[in-house]
Design a protein around this nucleic acid. Structure first.
Lengths: 330, 330
DNA sequence: TTGAAAGCGCTACCAT
DNA sequence: ATGGTAGCGCTTTCAA
């Protein structure tokens, strides 16, 4: 049989109330009793049942993390860094893949609420604010990461995506490119990057290549390939492409090579994220870096401070991207 | 206030026992009452508290997944496929990064047991069987994945690593290589791959390059680079290298290029896993494929059948690797 | 400083 | 067919 607080109490000749107090380190307990109880706990190898204490209103020390796709290196690296920080702080992570589908998002939210997680970290597409508002109304801690709702009061750790796009465009423009393509998905973050990109273009009286359109394919490498093919086979193909993530960039590069182009000589490609694949692909990818480690740490720290009630106001932490020059642009 | 079973009972003019019965679809309930209760649950938007029912001995519908490192594409893809299947079957996954450290493994196990997870899926290094035996003694469902304990009666979904190594060696040998290097970590799976590799060599009166030694670096790309450097700079450098995972292979290829070698002309490289990075790197990587999707599905299915008590005996499912020829070997 | 007892929200047994 | 009730293992007043 599993050893419970009753066994400990009996063995130590005290009440369960006393045991509970020493477990939680509160209430006034004599040093002597405390030691006696601790010894018994040790001896019996007692482990408090967290379900029971959670049922009494204590925390579950579990956070729900909703992300689009763990197989995307950006998200797996982000999840990794969030989990790391969570572990340091004593929290576990339930990780859920949403595939950018609202249905799945809602299912997971409902299920994890039934399981009484202490809060949600949302890295998912989450185009519908409603659900998020609903959570907040119920006083459930929520933090958005790698994603932003500028018009909306919510805790968030975000990247300045606009600036990222702006940096990418300027790099390309400085290199002398005038005909620029973009590969992006119709998500908030991507739209922001695109907006920053266009902003820089406008400053130089340039316009994005007319073949641009949002991609829909979920498999990013494939999406990158398809969009690259479209650009390259068009009459006025761009000389440089800004891919809104590294995976997309990898697809673009693959297709470019396949069609006989040299990257970067015939086509410059710049990515976004700076995941581990950026250094693996050939040529090494020039990309806009997101500080993934910091994002993970910040978001977990923010979550914990909210759970502990240390935050009265909503916070938004905006991290800045940076340009990493490698060999895929010239 | 959160709506509980009491609210529903009151509103529907029945007892909580009756409500419980309709929730769980058991006991004899008249169609009329059932409908009435269901309507009230709907109206009140009632969601049973899973902590409470778990405390009564029901399942938590949560599985612990221990893996070495989510940032490694093989593991993130595996985690993804396990999570997918779990979601279909109504289970959530708590994912834990162990970094191959026993300490972390033990911490996570202890913590998740306190949280009463329904079972553990272990993809981690787990060199010490003791903990695993302990879990099994306590009748906690455990399944090992991507890892095997051949001498040990435990549920497992494994790859035939020996065969994988054997395939890799034969491919290289058929290509005419005689001086073969290996990059591996001192883990069971890697040792098996190595054993299979050596077996094929022995059949051809060949021996592994004498500079071989296990790597220790956690960062696999870096480890691959370092080992490649060592091989290449030695007097009797190999003409082909078998890297025990794709990340390692990526590192090897990077370093080979950096040192001015052409892959595959000057050095053939074969990887293991067939993760998404295999097609991204240049040249596209010849590798030994693990059926990651099937592994994820099988391991989750096995876990659930154990939880449901459908398995009396231990099962070991062994999947077979296959050779994927691309451009990194010649 | 310690303990008795009342729950937390739910399940399951036993009556009715 | 339905309901009363005793827990599950723990926390938290409130008395002693």
């Amino acid at each position: 049989m599993k050893v419970t607080i009753y066994h400990v109490a009996k063995e130590a000749n005290v009440s369960i109330a006393t045991v509970s107090k020493v477990i939680n380190n509160n209430g006034r307990i004599s040093e002597k009793t405390r030691k006696k109880v601790k010894d018994v706990m040790e001896k019996l190898n007692y482990r408090p049942n967290m379900l029971a204490s959670a049922l009494m209103g204590k925390q579950t020390k579990t956070i729900g993390l909703l992300i689009p796709d763990l197989a995307n290196p950006f998200f797996s690296e982000l999840a990794r860094s969030i989990e790391d920080r969570g572990h340091e702080l004593g929290y576990n992570l339930v990780i859920c893949n949403t595939d950018y589908e609202s249905d799945k998002e809602n299912q997971y939210l409902a299920l994890l609420m039934q399981k009484s997680v202490d809060g949600f970290i949302l890295a998912s597409g989450f185009e519908n604010l409603e659900k998020v508002e609903e959570l907040m109304k119920q006083d459930i801690p929520v933090v958005i990461v790698a994603r932003d709702f500028p018009m909306f009061s919510v805790n968030a750790v975000a990247l300045d995506d606009f600036m990222g796009g702006y940096l990418a465009a300027n790099h390309l423009i400085e290199l002398g490119h005038q005909n620029l393509g973009v590969v992006a998905r119709d998500l908030w973050s991507n739209r922001e990057r695109l907006r920053g990109f266009n902003h820089a273009l406008a400053e130089n009286d340039l316009k994005i290549n007319s073949n641009f359109e949002f991609i829909h394919e979920i498999d990013h490498i494939k999406a990158g390939r398809e969009m690259a093919e479209k650009y390259i086979n068009s009459d006025n193909g761009p000389t440089a492409i800004f891919a809104c993530n590294d995976l997309l960039a990898a697809g673009v590069i693959q297709m470019a090579k396949q069609l006989g182009l040299n990257v970067p000589k015939d086509l410059s490609v710049i990515g976004f994220d700076n995941t581990s694949i950026a250094t693996i692909i050939e040529p090494p990818l020039t990309t806009i870096a997101q500080p993934i480690q910091s994002m993970g740490k910040e978001v977990m720290d923010l979550m914990v401070s909210i759970i502990k009630g240390e935050k009265e106001e909503k916070s938004r932490i905006t991290l800045l991207p940076s340009l990493i020059k490698r060999k895929s642009t010239v």
